[in-house]
Design a protein around this nucleic acid. Sequence first.
DNA 1: AATTTAAGCAACCGAATAATTGCATATATT
DNA 2: AATATATGCAATTATTCGGTTGCTTAAATT
Lengths: 106, 106
Amino acid sequence: MRRDVFQAIADPTRRAIILLIASQAMTPNAIAEHFDSTRQAVSKHLRILTECQLVKQEQSGREIYYQLNGTKMKEVDKWLEQFRKLWESRFDELDKVLQAMKKNKK
Amino acid sequence: MRRDVFQAIADPTRRAIILLIASQAMTPNAIAEHFDSTRQAVSKHLRILTECQLVKQEQSGREIYYQLNGTKMKEVDKWLEQFRKLWESRFDELDKVLQAMKKNKK
DNA sequence: AATTTAAGCAACCGAATAATTGCATATATT
DNA sequence: AATATATGCAATTATTCGGTTGCTTAAATT
């Protein structure tokens, strides 16, 4: 079973969950209330997020608070870093200009 | 058929393709030579990457050069931007310190 | 002690995915 | 013109994925 950060953030529901718990830790039930899907569906997503360490658990009695692991999110950023120059450089802008010139020729 | 950037970069082979053509545009055959998978498999990945606009085509005779679209990569970066403060802030460092203290208590 | 509530686990199902194989099309090369 | 090469498209298959349903465990509430 492949379980890496990229596969984890591929699902839109999981991205929504990540965004939701980014500001504050939440229990599975509380998270599920924000979605149309059932608690079990959310729970499954949480398991996947936990397995790839994007999310940490903090038990408090019978409640389990899920919290985002910022360090792991960094990994995606690290991968992206390789390409940052592609859109930050002016090559990108130059490309846009060239495209515009092509269009105007028509 | 869901076809967004996040789903596109979920596959490790596609990430490898992206990295490969980041520096210079390449034909499907040339790309396929860098992998164990067949040309058709690579071609399929290229189709997915093209559909979500992560990759642009440039035809030259019967050859088609595939080139990375930096602007689209930016989208992932944009999403990530929401969380950047999570690992750039010192909350993250503080968390590490607290974790270390917990361990030392044992 | 009995009931309610929070959460995880396992089996199952339909849809999507990745890869293979075979075929079609168009451009070079001879 | 015939052949070789580059690429795309379609059908098929095994695997994975997302979700539902039902059950179990454990902690809180009554």
